[in-house]
Nucleic acid binder design. Sequence first.
RNA 1: AUAGUGCAUCGGUCUAUCGCGCGAUAAGGGAAGAAAAGCACCUGCUUUAAUCCCCUAUCACGAGGAAAGUCCGGGCAGCAUAGAGCACCAUCGCGGUUAAUGGCCGUCAGGCAGCAAUGUUUGGUCCCUGCAAAAGAGACGAGUAAUCUGCAAAGAGGAUGUGAUACGAGCAUACGAUGGGCUGCAAUUCCAAGUAUACCAGUGUCUGAGCGUUGCUCGCGCGAGCUGGAGGGUAGGAAGCAACAGAAGGACGUAGUAAUACGCCACUCAAGAUUAAUGAUAGACACCCAUUCAUGGGUACAGAACCCGGCUUAUAGAUGCACUAUUUUU
RNA 2: GGAGCGCUAGUUCAAUGGAUAGAACGAUACACUACGGAUGUAUAGAUCGAGGUUCGAUUCCUCGGCGCUCUA
Length: 119
Amino acid sequence: MMNATFPKSEKLCGGQVVDHLYKTGKRFVAWPMRVTYLPLADGPSQVLIWAPKALFKHAVDRNRLRRQMREAYRLNKHVLVDADKHYHLAFNYIDKEMQDFKTISKAMGKALKRLTEEA
RNA sequence: AUAGUGCAUCGGUCUAUCGCGCGAUAAGGGAAGAAAAGCACCUGCUUUAAUCCCCUAUCACGAGGAAAGUCCGGGCAGCAUAGAGCACCAUCGCGGUUAAUGGCCGUCAGGCAGCAAUGUUUGGUCCCUGCAAAAGAGACGAGUAAUCUGCAAAGAGGAUGUGAUACGAGCAUACGAUGGGCUGCAAUUCCAAGUAUACCAGUGUCUGAGCGUUGCUCGCGCGAGCUGGAGGGUAGGAAGCAACAGAAGGACGUAGUAAUACGCCACUCAAGAUUAAUGAUAGACACCCAUUCAUGGGUACAGAACCCGGCUUAUAGAUGCACUAUUUUU
RNA sequence: GGAGCGCUAGUUCAAUGGAUAGAACGAUACACUACGGAUGUAUAGAUCGAGGUUCGAUUCCUCGGCGCUCUA
């Protein structure tokens, strides 16, 4: 049985850590998201999820996107765990339209698969 | 029955799988990570904080009527138990109501909309100080024409016209009454970690610099450092803050036209995050619309951030009560 | 979370409650030129939206929209 939990230790917190990630991390686009990542030696992978206020004015829409992206990560993260890869990750939503869960989940699967293939 | 007006209420439900936050209970486990210091002497070892932290199981709870805008008013916190004067700001028929308000209820007068129910909007004063482009003799202090008085000088007089308003008013920056101390939970308090005030200049130590939240002046309190240049370090955690509930809602009774008040009833009410929980997916039901009666589409506005009372704005649809107009029947 | 400020031609800025909202740059047309530039002449173009106060509103008040700043 795969472990599909998402405890707080897997969330990325702290201003300095976030700054470090965005300054030194590599990035690629997995539409409708942009992924910024930084490989780690060990420890749990930590994730940051972001829905920008500039694109979505209402808090309801941002909450919904954030929750869907979080669910997509939670259900797909076994790919990373199985490959024994550890990252600091940031997912930024970059599309102007709200996409449905299937699209986001598919994109998340592709993104994580690509990460496992990185050196 | 149709159309409308006012007041009030609700604003999806259930199941399955996976998941999140907070709390309680039970049984366990002993760490995680940052930075620094010390010992050693290049391989390392030791020590150390707030928060304690992690895992497992079960149970309970987990967004709104507007959580929104931040437009008012309070609670609460700090600053003299918040003090004085000036300045500033707000309110403005009358009466009531409240913890308080610019809100709410009742009511008076005028304007506007409507057949009506009703809705909407305006409402202190002109004594003092001021205001009005063009037009007009003249915009608040003078004065044009006819006419009258007078020997005359002059005085009285105020038409017509201009204009929104003309020896009478209007307006606010003026006056009056009433209210407001200022700042806001990033307030405020505590714990922990870390560094250096090295150096330069000015100023001051009771005849007192400077600081303390108020635009200024005082008053009051603290008081040996303070200001500028040039540097060093930190930005973690806890309380505030989530049932020791309260200006809380509801039913009933009494008073009142009403807002509301009082009494009574163990009737109801348990979110508390902080890179920020309250969810995701699938299915069924309910409601609405279309229809070829198989089915297809739609279900709004919108997400707590210390807490309350209002206002304003957004909102698919559903329900109840009262009233008005028209038509039909009795 | 809280506090404060702003919105005027395409752009940058003016305008004490008072006549037809002004200036510079830009745009368009014409002239000049073999063509273009420069220059000259002319033209078009705006008060964020909706109400209210006033004789009269860019200005004052209310509600909404958008943008910005400060604050541990």
